[in-house]
Design a protein around this nucleic acid. Sequence first.
RNA 1: GGUCUUGUGGCCGAGUGGCUAGGCAGAGCUCUGCAAAAGCUUCCACAGCGGUUCGAAUCCGCUCGAGACCUCCA
Length: 496
Amino acid sequence: MQPLKIYNTLSREKELFTPINAPHVGMYVCGPTVYNYVHLGNVRTFLTFDILNRYLTHIGYKVRYVRNITDVGHLVGDGDEGEDKIGKMAKLEKLEPMEIVQRYTNDFHKVLQQFNLLPPSIEPSATGHIVEQIETTKSLINKGLAYESQGSVYFDIARYNAEGGNYGKLSGRVLEDLLTETRDLDGVGEKRNPLDFALWKKAAPEHLMRWTSPWGDGFPGWHLECTCMSTKYLGDTFDIHGGGMDLKFPHHECEIAQAKGANGVEPVRYWMHSNMLTVNGQKMSKSLGNSFLPAELFAGSHPLLEQAFSPMTVRFFMLQSQYRSTLDFSNDALKAAQKGYKRLINGLRIVKKLEFITDEAIEIDQKHVLEVEKGIQTCYDGLNDDLNTAVAIAGLFNLVKKINQLYMGQVQPSQLGESTFNLLKEQFVAITENVLGLLEEPNENIEAFAKGMLSLYREYKEAKQYDKVDEVRGYFKANGLVIKDMKTKIDWAYEE
RNA sequence: GGUCUUGUGGCCGAGUGGCUAGGCAGAGCUCUGCAAAAGCUUCCACAGCGGUUCGAAUCCGCUCGAGACCUCCA
């Protein structure tokens, strides 16, 4: 098993990852609130944990990956008094709340599929776990950690901390500071303490999404669903909990408090937070109005873009940085990424076609063997170091160099030896496709087109009909391809 | 205001106290009918000022800049 180190927000250190029940790994990631289209910033977070899921699987773990759909309870605006986001959209569009949920869940799935993210093992929804949320709320009331107030139930933070809880430890907040800095919000009157958060909210008469509970008709609070669903499917304590940096406080802090209050144990071993995608140095977010929709990107229709970019280009672009760093999104950066991606994929196409040829007259050259081994090791070192995909990609590019040398005949397969040669093929493909999820983008009939055109090209060349030769080159270029004219053969590649 | 993160070459973006990141762009060479592709070589760095050290882009302090969270956000 590879020695994977993970940066744990809880300890603020990189820690060696050791699962509770190897080879099983339990991982929970906060999914989207499906009241609107996902934007690229959202995608980055899910991509981060897609890589983690893929890598854990690649190195031999059996992962149960739970990622929820929030379809109730997430409120608009300040504190606990805003409107439900789903309910608000439903009213605006004159639809059933569940129609809103379905529409944006579908969009979410479609987008993630376009970016080649693997689906989670379980994708539970908040509305599907109302019973569990009511039960947990009851349990917290019985333990004295929650109280009912005018039909709503709140978590009692002061009590939780008095009993040894440590609200604020994940995000590094001090309770006293939070108390003095918290703005006065409407509805504070219902709470004993402005920081207390809702487990269950009373539904006003006009509220669309409502369920019967011991406290009257209402709906669950936002934080509670994650606790109930992670506990149900992964146990009281599980290995990894992930999400975007902006969920650290208060969402994840509240999750810890509820879970510890209800189950008596620390819920999570490793907390992981991915950083924000920025635009001109500023966080991409819906409220700032600077978010990019995947569809705008694929169509090139956003004002800040000069051209369209494919899903794989964007995936590659995001993986060129480490998930804990902010990543700035720009047309120029994407253009550079597009070329880099094409170079990598050309390497992938070639390496799949390379065949080992035994040549007794050629001896193994340790220099080449070491370069291959080093390139592969760089990939693993990078991934093991808190999923440093940027380093892993650097390793792949070093291997691309070797692959091209083999392809051009500058290095012979026999110089690597059969085992190193096979290692290069296997590992390059596995890391690129399985771990990083970078695929050659489907381009229908391109192989057939290229094959026919290349034989024409060859004929014209032999006949020295250079005007025709140039014409054929033009066809290729028009299709985003280039001809590779080598000493002993002719082939094509994607234009970078 | 509080807490925290961050400042790398023309651009994006890794990184460790001494050993090549990588990609894009630029220059040269090889190959070529000319190109392209590919390979090889090469230019351009660690915000500023101090300190620790034999040695710091990497540790510490200060200054300046940027950002995140503190209220919904991945």
